[in-house]
């Protein structure tokens, strides 16, 4: 929430001129008959996606050249709002002239980009991105029909956010690598959940297989378990890398929050094993730098925590 969100914008004002134009005058509206396909020396492919009860439905017609597998004509019919009709129209246009193998790489993002008036302004407001997803889904359905395969075989990755096309593995990775703790952070890093918001939690615009809240909870639970698990192994037997990670973890969990309260912080400058004695060299930051107790009380505190949590032999020095 901020200034821009208070009054917000009128939904339709955030449609590009191209979207409005295509809603008012779709160029590829209609059907292709068997006879017409035959006259083009083409195979007729008809694919359907969605239903009236879902709020969006589209039917895609292709005439696919029998020799080259190139789509020589594409048309659509659509039940949906203005952006759905405009997306369907643009999707049909993007199919024309491509082979079936080429067309499968077209995504909703391509459709949305093609509908932009200028390259930097989205063609539709965030909550309307899901309308272009339908255009992508029906292309996949058409390819599957053409190839006689199940539509599921065309997409290997689990797609969590259809609008921004973010996969399950991407989201899990970004949570782990960046130690993300909230759905808002996931959205900031990946754009997942930034558009129609259906994938954030159950009860949104449409039902999803995966929700960000669940992925976050599961991934963090996994991370916590791993962290706890590594503690069970004696510190002395960890690899140098894991030793360092363990120290960082203890600093994050037990020490830094206390220092942050007083405006201070601490970094690890170096870490060595002096025989069986782990020796950490630290550097103070912020308010700790000028603090009288930093070399005595705080240092003792840090050493005691590391001794308690990791290894009774710990020594801490200030670099």
């Amino acid at each position: 929430m901020a200034k821009g969100d208070l009054v917000g914008g009128s939904l339709w004002q955030n449609y590009s001129k191209k979207v409005a134009e295509r809603m008012d005058h779709p160029r590829y509206l209609g059907v292709i008959s068997e006879e017409e396909a035959e006259s083009l020396n083409a195979e007729l492919i008809v694919a359907e996606h969605g239903a009236e009860s879902c709020g969006d439905a589209v039917r895609l017609y292709w005439a696919v050249d029998k020799n080259s597998s190139r789509i020589v004509k594409a048309t659509f019919k659509s039940f949906g709002c203005g952006t759905a009709i405009a997306s369907s129209d643009m999707m049909a246009e993007l199919c024309i002239g491509k082979t079936v193998d080429e067309v499968v790489t077209i995504t909703n993002l391509d459709v949305e980009k093609a509908l932009r008036d200028d390259p930097d302004t989205p063609a539709v407001p965030p909550q309307k991105m899901h309308c272009s997803v339908m255009a992508y889904d029906v292309i996949k359905a058409a390819v599957a029909t053409y190839k006689g395969v199940d539509v599921g075989t065309l997409e290997a990755a689990e797609m969590v956010c259809e609008c921004a096309r973010v996969t399950l593995s991407t989201i899990k990775d970004v949570i782990r690598v960046n130690n993300l703790k909230s759905v808002e952070e996931i959205t900031d890093y990946t754009k997942a959940g930034a558009f129609c918001k259906s994938c954030i939690h159950p009860g949104g615009h449409e039902k999803r297989k995966w929700y960000l809240v669940d992925i976050l909870a599961e991934t963090r639970a996994g991370m916590d378990k791993e962290a706890a698990g590594s503690d069970e192994e004696p510190f002395i037997e960890l690899s140098p890398f894991k030793k360092f990670k363990a120290i960082e973890r203890v600093l994050d969990a037990e020490i830094r929050p206390a220092l942050h309260q007083d405006g201070g912080d601490v970094d690890v400058e170096d870490f060595i094993m002096d025989g069986d004695t782990p020796v950490v060299t630290i550097a103070y930051r912020g308010a700790c730098l000028g603090c009288m107790s930093a070399t005595v009380g705080t240092l003792g505190f840090i050493e005691n925590v590391l001794k308690e949590k990791l290894d009774p032999a710990f020594k801490v020095e200030v670099g």
């Binding site: 939904l11 879902c54 709020g55 969006d56 129609c196 615009h205």
Partner: peptide, 19 residues
């Protein structure tokens, strides 16, 4: 487009429940 203002409860643009 034809100068008539009406409204809809359709949920296409809404973030809330499906309809």
């Amino acid at each position: 487009r034809r100068g008539v203002a009406a409204s809809t409860g359709s949920a296409c643009s809404s973030e809330s429940l499906e309809a």
